[in-house]
């Protein structure tokens, strides 16, 4: 599903990723484990096509997403990946369901399909009860579940989560894990970047990949 080949990322003179080679199967649930500054966000961003690497390739279903035009890269972001960011980037003044509407604006779906997509995503992410609430008035856990719902709304095959539990208490972290389990059952390909020990004990995790100073161990 995802094939990363000799990937390098350099910020000015700092080498954030060093010759990464990685294969992730379709439907696999992978933990990307590493301390702060090890390059987790950088790697996820490149897989999610919101950052370009300095060199190397990322092949998704056989296509190198690194060299896509804006048109195709946008299309990839829109339909193939759902990105759950480290901090909760939302339209604060818009309601939960309107935030979920944003990625759907650029699709060709009918009104009914849009409504169904939003319902379903909110239901999976367990946020349906706050549908009309402005996101600025939500708790941290609710904000995060909104971000997850938004990542799911376009039914992507790949889910990328960047430190999903960093800002959550134990209760909310467990809720998140429930959602991830559901996604795993839906056969999504999941990559979670984290250094939260909570994940290492999970039975549904297929593999833990350790990253240190930009290299895989």
């Amino acid at each position: 599903m995802i094939e990363i080949k000799s990937l390098n990322k350099k910020f000015k003179n700092y080498q954030a990723l060093k010759d990464i080679n990685l294969h992730i199967d379709g439907g696999e649930f992978v933990i990307l484990n590493g301390i702060s500054g090890s390059g987790k966000t950088t790697l996820l961003s490149i897989i999610g096509a919101i950052m370009k690497p300095t060199s190397g390739a990322v092949e998704v279903s056989g296509e190198n997403i690194v060299s896509l035009s804006d048109f195709h890269a946008s299309n990839y972001r829109s339909t193939m990946v759902g990105f759950v960011t480290q901090s909760f980037h939302l339209f604060d003044e818009l309601s939960v369901e309107d935030n979920l509407f944003v990625p759907l604006v650029i699709t060709n779906l009918s009104d009914d399909e849009v409504a169904t997509r939003i319902e379903d995503a909110m239901s999976v992410a367990n946020i349906s009860h706050k549908a009309q609430q402005k996101t600025k008035n939500l708790s941290g856990g609710e904000k995060q579940r909104t971000v997850i719902a938004r990542a799911l709304v376009n039914k992507p095959q790949i889910i990328l989560c960047d430190e999903p539990t960093a800002n959550l208490d134990l209760d909310n972290s467990l809720k998140f894990i429930e959602i991830i389990k559901r996604l795993k059952e839906m056969k999504k390909t999941i990559v979670v970047a984290t250094h939260d020990p909570l994940f290492s004990k999970l039975s549904c995790v297929d593999r833990v990949i350790n990253i240190k100073e930009g290299s895989l161990e």
Binding site: S74, N75, F83, V102, I106
Partner: peptide, 16 residues
């Protein structure tokens, strides 16, 4: 700026 970056990360094209 945040709004634009957010839209872009969700798959909005530059022209959109």
């Amino acid at each position: 700026s945040k709004e634009i970056a957010l839209l872009r990360s969700m798959g909005w094209r530059i022209d959109s």
